[in-house]
Nucleic acid binder design. Structure first.
Lengths: 235, 235
DNA sequence: TTAAAAAAGTGATAAATGTCATAAAACATG
DNA sequence: CATGTTTTATGACATTTATCACTTTTTTAA
């Protein structure tokens, strides 16, 4: 299986460039680098499955992953995406539960695995790091609650507009105002929490309304203020 | 305003009975007790509003609060309930953001306020406490993601069954198999994420199907296995 | 205790969204 | 590059759920 490749060059990964590790001492950084094992993962590769036991955290050095839950009838609900600098899998490591999501590579990714014991000992030893990680988790919780409310109360149309804007914030637009991430209609539907056909119809509607332009999976945002209005998004 | 009463008897509150504080030393417990100020709150009282700045945490000694977000059109989405031993408001204190929810007293409550600096210094000083709090947050995040998926994918009927079971788990049944919490139909709707009328109709349906019995706001669960099946709830 | 307010309940109807079937287009891969 | 597979697209239709209007019941507070 060529889906995973070991990359022994831990030293080339600059942990300090991720601000979660900013508070670490030289020695802590050094020991962290020693304990990590970095791997290259191809698109489609699954890092861990919902319900499995993971005993550590992955640091995303490069690439994009989607983190999703599988509903009762097998339908995916995308919880979030992870990109450069994000941590994946630490929730279940810390809560000492089985993984409550599946993590799948969307864009080829370079990941560094950090064993759980190292993570927890770091929390115990370095309170600044503990605080950063807690801050991160609390923010994620806030976002989850926000989106929960949106799914419960907003229409599919509103949510689709919101998701497009969210993708813009997360992955930016290129010079051409096109979203820098390419998702299938089904993946969009799994973010919005709706049927694929509904996304397809609403995207064409947005297109006829001159809010976006479509070119395969490339989505160009041409009227952002209107999208904000449709999505009832206030910053 | 008689809605809030100061209760100076901090010493009567036994922090150790809440396992989040189990790892604290004698001195830490003592200083915690000194920094707390305890107050009695009447039903309907709002502890803090979404968007306000709260600089500390409340420990729920007695009573029940609902924690909710207010959607675009003013509709409440209940995120969770807090009861004896729960912490409220620490998410925004730690993430250093404005409150992302409103907390309102449902059953008269005795609350102890813990200033943010005390909380953060405790995290810094006692790594066991830091770990407990982080574990708590991570579990909450897991639940939030679970419910997000349910709202996105399950029908209102399924969600209502699930919510009844959730309330059973959270507040227990009395000897008569009746839910130990009394909510309005609107509040139930605000948990389920649906219209009040839908909850009313579905509750009567559950009643005719002999799954529950209704007596005002008292809900008696008489066929729990069937409710589990309807809600597609697996533990 | 009683008047006013809030909540519960019900029916009719509208709107939103999902499902299914099918076709065309795009993509992947031997 | 041919072909099987996946994705996108579209229409018809079914279902779910929300909304509105109204009545009855319950709760609250003067």
């Amino acid at each position: 299986m060529k889906n995973i490749q070991n990359v022994p060059f831990n030293d080339e990964v600059d942990l300090l460039s991720y601000n979660i590790f900013n508070g670490l001492t030289e020695e802590e950084l050094e020991s962290l680098t020693q304990s990590m094992s970095c791997t290259l993962h191809k698109r489609g590769n699954i890092l861990y499955h919902e319900g499995s036991r993971i005993n550590g955290t992955y640091i995303v050095v490069k690439g994009i992953l989607k983190v999703y839950k599988t509903g009762f009838d097998g339908k995916e609900q995308i919880i979030r995406f992870a990109k450069d600098g994000d941590l994946i899998g630490f929730r279940s490591t810390i809560s000492d539960e089985l993984a409550c999501t599946t993590a799948k590579v969307v864009n080829d990714a370079l990941l560094c695995y950090l064993p759980g014991e190292i993570l927890t000992s770091l929390i115990k030893v370095n309170s600044e790091f503990a605080m950063s990680l807690m801050k991160l988790t609390c923010r994620e919780l806030g976002e989850s609650n926000k989106f929960l409310t949106d799914i419960a109360q907003k229409t599919v149309r509103e949510r689709l507009a919101e998701v497009l804007l969210l993708l813009m914030d997360t992955f930016d637009l290129d010079e051409d105002h096109t979203l820098q991430i390419s998702l299938t209609r089904e993946e969009l539907a799994n973010m919005v929490g709706t049927a694929t056909e509904s996304v397809i119809r609403l995207l064409s509607e947005f297109k006829s309304d001159k809010l976006i332009e479509l070119n395969g999976r490339k989505i160009k945002l041409i009227n952002i203020p209107k999208l904000i209005k449709i999505g009832n998004v206030y910053i």
